[in-house]
Structure formats: C-alpha cells, structure tokens
Nucleic acid binder design. Sequence first.
DNA 1: CTGAAAGCGCTAACAG
DNA 2: CTGTTAGCGCTTTCAG
Lengths: 328, 328
Amino acid sequence: MARPTMEDVAARAGVSRALVSLVMRGSPKVSAARRTAVLEAAAELGYSPHAMARSLASRTSHVLGVMVSDLHNPFWAEVVDGLDGHARAAGFELVINTGGRSPSREQQALRSLTSFRPAGIALLGPVVASSAITAAADVPLVLVSRSSRLSIVDTVNDDGRAGSALAVDHLVALGHREIVHIDGGSGSQAAPRRAGYQVAMARHGLTPRVARGEYTEAAGAAAVRSLRSPFTAVLAANDLNAVGVLSALAEAGLRVPEDVSVVGYDNTWLAGLRHIGLTTIDQPREEMGRLAATALISRVRGERTAAARLVVQPTLVVRATTGPPRTQ
Amino acid sequence: MARPTMEDVAARAGVSRALVSLVMRGSPKVSAARRTAVLEAAAELGYSPHAMARSLASRTSHVLGVMVSDLHNPFWAEVVDGLDGHARAAGFELVINTGGRSPSREQQALRSLTSFRPAGIALLGPVVASSAITAAADVPLVLVSRSSRLSIVDTVNDDGRAGSALAVDHLVALGHREIVHIDGGSGSQAAPRRAGYQVAMARHGLTPRVARGEYTEAAGAAAVRSLRSPFTAVLAANDLNAVGVLSALAEAGLRVPEDVSVVGYDNTWLAGLRHIGLTTIDQPREEMGRLAATALISRVRGERTAAARLVVQPTLVVRATTGPPRTQ
DNA sequence: CTGAAAGCGCTAACAG
DNA sequence: CTGTTAGCGCTTTCAG
C-alpha cells in the first residue's frame, strides 16, 4: 500500500532506476520504446515522483512559494491568476500560503514557505517587517504592492501616487473641494497613495484630510462614522474599504453621489457589480501577477542579478459613485 | 552563502548533529545549557530546518494540502480561515493550491499537492472526477462541499436539500408561486440543492423550473436573460450567482423585491453588504473548515478509519431581496 | 543506454 | 546525554 518508488517502476519495466529517472525528467536520450515501457509501468503502479526527494537530490526546485496577505480581498485572487498562468507555462508550480494581514502570522507563513526550499517566493501585499523579509531572502524574492530598498528583492507596484492623483483630479474636475482620504494605515502601498493624495490636494490649493483606515470593509465604515466636519467626497483606501464607506454613508442617510462622491482603488470585480458601481482606480491585476512571475523566474534562472522595480500605471474607471457636489 | 545545515549548527555549538536534531524537535532529553547553546548557534547562523529532508527521513509530514476550486469565491476564503486556524493549533501547516474550476487543472493541482507527500489533503469544492480523487487517495482525504460514496474519504457538507427547501418555503410563505432555480450546473453540491428545490416545489404543489447555471456572477446574469416565461422569484446557485441575477434584473428594469425576489446561497460577506442586502441561505463556513481539519487530523493520527460524513445545517437569512409578489 | 556509488539534509535506532 | 550507523527517494557522476 506504500507509494511506489522509482525502484518499483524500474523493476516493473525491466530497466534500471537511472533510466526511469531520465524518462521522468523528459530527457531526450532515451529510446521511444523504453520510454513508453517506463511510462506504462509508472501508470500501472500509479507512480508519481516524490517532489521533495527530487529537489533534495538535485538541489533545485520547480516550486514558487506565494504568500497572500489576505485571502478575502478579491484583488489577490486576480493577481494569483496572473502568477499561476505564467508560472505554469514556465514549468513551475505554485504553493500558496496566507498571512491573515498580521505581521506575526505572515512571518510564520514565510518561514513555512521557505521550509519547502522553493526556487523563489512572491509576497503579495506583505505587512511583515522588512527585516523578516531579508532573513528569508536566500531565494529570489518578489514583492507585489510593497516597495523596498533592498537590492536583493524585486518589486511590482502600481504608481500609487499617480493613482491617487488621478482620483483627486477627477473629483476636483467635478467641482469637489472637501475631499477626505481614508488611508490603508500600515497596509502595503498605503504610504504612496496617501502621499499622492496630499500632493494632488496641495497642487489644487486644497487642504488634505486623512482619516486613518485599513484595507477592510469594516475600517471604511468606521472611518466615515468618525468623521466630524463636512466633506463632499472620499477617496477610500481600496475597493473593500470603499464598500464599507458606501454602507456607512447610506446608514447616515447620505446619498451617493448626490451628497457624497466615493472613489475606490483596485478595480476588483466587486467595484464592477451593478449594485455597487464604484468609481475606482484600476490596477492591472493579472499583469502584475504575470510580471511578478517573470521577475522571479528570470532571477531563478540567473538571467538577472540587478533588482527589478516594475511599475504599472493605474487608470481611472468612472462608474456611478462620483458626480458633481450639490451646490449649496 | 548556502543555507546552513544541521551539521553547521552542530559544529558551531560544539555538539553532535544528533543533539541538534533533538533540540530542533523539542525533545525533553536535552540539558538546558546545551539546548540554549544549540539554539544560539542556530540563530547566529540563521538556520531553519529543511522540512523536506525532515519528512523524507521521518516518513511523516506536518503539512496539510488544500486544493481550492475557485479563489475568486469568498466562500472558500472563509472555509480556509477555519481550516487554517484549527490546523495551526494542531501543529500542522497548510499548503494551498488552486484548481480554477476546471477538472483538468484540478487534477494537475491535486498531483502537485500529492508530490509534497502531505499528511492529508482537503479538496474544497472539487469538480474533478471521483476516479482522479481515488487515485490520489493514499493519504487521508476530506472533501468539502462535495459528497462521495468512497469509504476512504471524509466529507463535510451542508444539507443542500434542506437549504433549498428553506428558501422555497420562505418564498412560498411570502406568496410566490413562479419560483425559478438557477442551478450550479456540474459544480460541487449543485445536485442536492437542485433536488431540494424540486422536492420542496412539489410539496407545495408548484411546478419546478430549473435554468442551467454555474457558480459565477456571469452565469447568474446569463441565466436570467435567457428566461422566457414570467417568474416572480429566483433561487440562485450561490451568492456570486445571485449577484449576477440582481444585475441582469436591474438591466431589464425589474425591481427587487417588488417585481422579483432573489435568494442566494452561502451567506458570504458579499451577501451582507448593505448595497446588496441579499436574502440567502447561510452555511457555517468557518465551522466547515474546522470540521474538515478535525476529520483530516484524526485520520492522520490513525484515531479513526471509518468514513466521516459530517453534515452541517444551513439556515435562512432574510435581508432585502425578498418580499411578497406584486398582486396582479 | 546500464549499473554502481555517492550524497542531498535529516531522523531513528542503538551502543556507548 | 553522545556519536555512530543506516537509510528516506531521488539525482548525478562515471565507467562500462
């Protein structure tokens, strides 16, 4: 009942174990006849190679580790799609982990991932300390939605400053002046989005107002409830956060966009739902996943040693939650 | 630059490799002095044990493989939460994979998972053929949201027939008679939900009408558009599907619930959003994850050999998408 | 193409 | 408590 090993397959096919190894790795130096014999024997036995033994012996791995900070945010599912497609095409497999938006759990997840000695690791929206990242960095590492100064890691980010500016410009063009930003707190990429907002507001001669938030629905709702002085528009931390904002506004009896305009960030499928119809800043999610996979794989193959700083451009998607402010 | 091994730690601490092994596994038969010496040496070297070598040598594993059929459905994220919490508490780590709702990709994912020789595997909403499941079943297996007759696998399901009946009874009590069901096609658990709907309709003396669907938003919208004859209520395949239904109804100029009532299934956070306010059938998602972890771990420990058939009870959650039909 | 031999990093006895 | 001796399942030489 124990799983068959290469030895078993070799015995059954009447060949040497070395030959089975060659066949399993798809070597061209095997005659067609023997190859089929081996494959048949393997199929009959239900043999499948032991990935760990293989990577232990070969000191290589075809596994890419992926740490997803928050499985509940649809944004990451779409990034993983891009990663998965590209990795698979290049002959790599994904092993996914989750960090639950908590630094300590992320650190555990990272350790767990490295214990598999993957060829490379992608961290999607990590909040863990940069020192913890360095400690794990004896394999190629790529950070998505988090910047880094470390030359040993690659990064894939949208231009968060530009994205926020896009939102502010859109709102100002509609006539808004009282624009609040609910930020992502210490979440990944919250800082550039915040900075972009502040700079854009200043450029328009407006006073920035930042409310502390987080990348969750609950935080968006809470932030709105805590806001005292009046405002006519809010730039939320991300789509999830924006949905919380919408709920809190509705609760308060405020209409969107007549009383308050709302802009999200990410353009996940959530924003596109007809009943949400959220104006938002689009990040090319699948492409970001693809870029991350490409960066990782090129490092793994030793094709590049300099750090890659991949930046994608966000774009504005106007839907139903933004409009001109009410004239007083 | 190569990763330090146990040998390196032993050398640095001035002890034998066996002692380091004992310390790493937390054995009590090591003096406090030597233990700290070893741990210090390990910390200085940045040593972390090689999970694969360990499991290769010990023929055991503390890894649980998880195949998620669809990362885009928030339902699974919540099940994974339950699984993760319980597994972690029991000293197991999760390795996640995704199948993209395609049988062939699921099979690949399953193969990839088994290549790590995990202690057990959880399949969340698999659509892959049952034969492919058996082939992988030389480790304990648990299926979530999919039934099975195989005695070697455990299952965790809600009572889908009861869930559908709950929805139908609710709609009938409101006065509906033209109730359409958009089903989950060949998706996991679509059959019992469909059967429950049909039985409940018959019990009320009503004619069942099933439209072919899938567990996606797009399928829900498409199904509504394809419906010819009139109806006053729809029971969707799941929440995602229901959201598509809501969109298509809005497009067609139909109001919810005045013109048409809509019931979802799952009660993911999506249903609870104020702007959706979907009446739905709740499945205890985290608990399902917890039960799956418990089942898997008890099998892994050899505490049970009989198949577990764990069934949880769905409940009705009434929100804003259901109401009495318009009186003609 | 084969067979033998060494070794990946670790655990599991077992005799000191 | 220690050091030794065997492997786990596989890849990698290297000499046939």
